[in-house]
Computed example of a mutant assay.
Amino acid sequence: MKYLLILVALSGATSVYGNWEKCIDGDLFVIDSLSRSWEASKTLCSQNGGHLAVLATEDLTTQFKQFLNDENLDAHISKGMWIGFNDIQQEGTFTWIDGTAWDYTDWFRTQPDNNNKRDSCHGQDCGQIWKWPRSNPTWQWDDDYCFKSKPHVCQYESHQTCNTP
């Protein structure tokens, strides 16, 4: 049986389970520090009533990146975190997993690059947010190999935790 453990931490404090939570615009964003593939992360979010985070607007992305910086998450998460976009169906055509329009991007300057050195059949098809480069780093989007294990961000829309006065 699956359980969703959400600790109320509106300030974004770290929970004892290695998760960080933040309410943004009524949605609850939960960062799970346990590493999984993109598909396993997507499945886990879905089983718990959410989906991988859809950072489809500049305002939402800015607020989320501010949360990451405020919590100094790069000290805890060094290889990026899965979020909810991919180009699995058609190379170079990225889509959000919830069908939200692809109107805004926040790619790192050399991305997406579909590097296929480690997977010549598929290349890099799944979306992550990572802090790069090592000198003067910023949180931005990147495409990466879907099979890689890394933390992920689940989004729970209109979550009651976020709508309590």
Results as ranks from 00 to 15, higher is better:
residue 56 A to M: 01
residue 30 V to A: 09
residue 102 W to C: 00
residue 75 A to P: 02
residue 149 S to Y: 01
residue 118 R to H: 13
residue 79 K to D: 15
residue 28 L to V: 03
residue 37 S to W: 09
residue 45 C to D: 01
residue 126 C to Y: 03
residue 19 N to S: 11
residue 70 D to H: 01
residue 92 G to W: 00
residue 21 E to L: 14
residue 139 W to Y: 11
residue 131 K to D: 04
residue 55 L to Y: 03
residue 21 E to K: 09
residue 140 Q to P: 00
residue 42 K to D: 07
residue 141 W to R: 13
residue 98 D to L: 07
residue 165 P to I: 07
residue 136 N to R: 11
residue 59 D to H: 08
residue 24 I to F: 03
residue 32 D to R: 09
residue 8 V to M: 01
residue 111 Q to L: 14
residue 6 I to V: 10
residue 112 P to S: 11
residue 28 L to H: 03
residue 99 G to Y: 04
residue 109 R to D: 14
residue 122 H to D: 08
residue 62 T to N: 05
residue 10 L to E: 13
residue 163 N to M: 12
residue 143 D to A: 06
residue 37 S to C: 08
residue 112 P to E: 11
residue 15 S to I: 03
residue 157 E to A: 01
residue 77 I to W: 06
residue 144 D to P: 00
residue 110 T to W: 10
residue 103 D to G: 04
residue 113 D to E: 12
residue 66 Q to C: 01
residue 34 L to W: 01
residue 113 D to I: 11
residue 99 G to M: 07
residue 94 F to E: 15
residue 107 W to F: 09
residue 164 T to M: 14
residue 16 V to F: 05
residue 63 Q to Y: 06
residue 133 P to L: 07
residue 64 F to N: 05
residue 74 D to G: 06
residue 48 N to W: 09
residue 151 P to S: 13
residue 97 I to D: 13
residue 88 I to T: 11
residue 61 T to R: 12
residue 109 R to E: 14
residue 64 F to I: 07
residue 104 Y to R: 09
residue 93 T to M: 05
residue 124 Q to V: 00
residue 115 N to Y: 15
residue 104 Y to S: 08
residue 103 D to R: 11
residue 20 W to Y: 14
residue 28 L to K: 02
residue 91 E to L: 08
residue 34 L to E: 12
residue 118 R to Y: 14
residue 137 P to E: 14
residue 93 T to P: 00
residue 69 N to A: 10
residue 73 L to Y: 09
residue 103 D to K: 13
residue 19 N to Q: 15
residue 31 I to P: 10
residue 10 L to T: 14
residue 10 L to F: 05
residue 108 F to D: 15
